[in-house]
Write a protein that binds this DNA or RNA. Sequence first.
DNA 1: TAGCTTTGTCATTTC
DNA 2: CGGAAATGACAAAGC
Length: 608
Amino acid sequence: MIEIDLPKIQHSQQDVDVIDILWRQDIDLGACREVFDFSHRQKEHELQQQRELEEERSRQQLREQEKALLAQLQLDEETGEFVPRPPTSAPEAQPAATPPTATQNIPFTEEEGDALSFDECMQLLAETFPLVESVETETPLWTPIHPLTSSRPAVMDPHEPPLMETDFMPTLEPPQKPPPDLEQAWMELLSIPELQKCMNLQMEDMLEPENLTATGSLTEEREANYSFYMPNHTDMGGDTTDTEYLNTFERPITNAQSPDDHVQRTLTVPDISTALSGDSFCDLFYPEITTKQDNTAPATQPISSGDAGHPLAGLPKDTLLKPMGISKFALEEGFESVKAEVMGEFSHSDSGLSLDSSSKPSSPGKPMHVDESFGNSDSEMEEMGTNPGGAESDCTETRALFHQEDNYQVPSPVSSPLTMSQDSKARNPKTNPAERGHHRKPPFTKDKAKRSTGSRSSRDEQRARALQIPFAVDTIVNLPVDDFNEMMSRQQLNEAQLALVRDIRRRGKNKVAAHNCRKRKMENITGLEAELASLREERERLQRERRETGSSLQEMKKQLSSLYLEVFGLLQNEQGQPYSPSEYSLHLSADGSVFLIPRTKKTLSKSE
DNA sequence: TAGCTTTGTCATTTC
DNA sequence: CGGAAATGACAAAGC
C-alpha cells in the first residue's frame, strides 16, 4: 500500500492519481466513494495492512486446525469424503460428533484432539475469566451472561460428571490429572457456556481477523460474533438431549436474530420473550454490541436487513445457520422410529453429496401445484441466481431469504422438536452461502471464495422452508423407506407439501446416485486405463519374445546349414569323388541314421 | 469470451 | 409390478 501524507492539504496531480489508483483498488474490495476521504482511507490502509497480517496468521492456524480435524475424520469409501469417526466413547458424547456439516464446515469445532489441549484450554479459561464468580442461581431458563465476566447458566446437563458440578470455573485450576478419556472430557468441557464463549473468542480471533480491523475494536467484534458459534459448540459439545440447556442458547440467539424470529419464538416460549424481549434482552446479553453496533455497522458492512433498530439485526443470520445436527437430533427425538443405524447413515449423508439443489427453474416434469405454491420464492431464487455479484446482490439475497424465514413457521403438532429442527436448519451453513459471505467483513474477496465453494445453494431447503416442510432435507432424503413413510404419515401435510417432499427425496436420492454413478464411471475408466497399460506391456513383451525366438531360429538354421554342408562335403563315392549336392541330399531317419538319397529318386518317390 | 469441468436434475432403463 | 438404483443427456455455474 502507498502511504498517504495526511497533513498535506494541497494535493498534486500525482497524489490525485495515486488516490485514483487506490480508489479503484478499493472498489475491487467493495469500498464506496465515501471511503475516499483521506482520514478514512488512511485508516482503511492501516486496517488493510493489519487485516492482511491477521489473515495470514489466521490461515496458518486454520490450516493446523483443519489438519487436526482431518485427523478426527475418516474417509467415507462410498462417497470419498471425510466423515467423523464413529464415536467410541460414552453415548452422550455421540451427538457431538455426528453432525457432518458442523464438523466439515466448521473445522474449529472439532479440534479438540490436537489444536488445543486440555491444559491449554484451561489456561485459556484462566486468562479469559480471571475474576470468575459463580452465580449459581436457580433461574429456570438462563441467566444473563456478560461476555467478559462469568456466570454459569443455571441449567446444566444433568449428565455432567462431578467435575462439572463442582464448578471448577472460579478456581480455574487444571485438574490434578487429565481425565481418562480426553475426548469425553472435551465434550463435557464444551458443554460449559463459558468455555464455549472462550473457545469462540479464540476461534473468532483466529478465523475472523478482518472483523477486528473493520472497526478497530477487537472486543466489540468478538462480542458481536462470538455468540454465533455457540450453536456449533452446543451442537458439538453439549448434550443435545438436554433440550433445556439448548434452549438457554437457542432461544436468546434466535431472538437476537430478528424481531420476526423473536415473535416466532414467543409462540413457543412466551415466558422468555416476555421477560427478555428484543433490545432489552440484547442489552442484557450483548451489552457491548448494543451500545456500539450503531457505530460499527456503517463502517463494516452495509446492513440491509431493514431492521436497523435491532442491535443484532445487522448481523446476518447466516452465522447462525451452521449446524444441521440439532435438526437431526431434534427431529429424531420426536421421531423415535429412526434407528441407530440411520443415525450412522446421516453422518454420511452430507459427505460430498450435499443435498442441495441447483438454481434451476422449475422443471417441466415437476408437479404444477408445487411450482405454483412457491412461485414467488422461486422467482426470487432465480433472481438470486442470476443477479451479478456484489454487495447489492448479497443484500438482495439476504433480504429474500429473510423474507422467507420470517414467514417460515411450523404448523407441526410436534412443536418442540420440529421447531428445533427448523432452528437448526436455519443455521445450516449450506442453506445460504450468500448470507455467510454477507456477514464476513472483506466483502468481495471472501464472498467470491465462499460462492465458489458453496455456490450451490440449497434450493430444496428453501423450497421446503417456503412450503413449511417440517423435516430437514437430510432427513427426507436419507431416511429408509419405512421410516420415511412413517414420518410422512405422522405429519398432516397437504398435497403440495407431500409432492415437494417426494421431489426432494427423489432429487436427493438421484443426486447420490449420480455421484456414485460418476464415481463408478471414473473408476471404470481408471481400471480400463490400467488394463490397457498392462495389455500394452504384455504385447511389448510378446513381440520382444517373438523377435528373440526368430533370431534364435535363424541362428539355428545357419548352424544346421553349415553342418549339413560340412557333412555332405565329407561324403565321397567309390571313386573318391564328392557327391554333387544337386544330385543327392542327406536324410536323417527317425532312428538317427543318416542316408544319402539321390534327389531324382527322391523326387520320383515323392511324385509317386 | 470460448471451452472445459463439475454438479444437479430429469427421463429412461435396469435391477 | 412397484420402487429404488443406475445411467445417459442436458443445463447451469464456475474456472
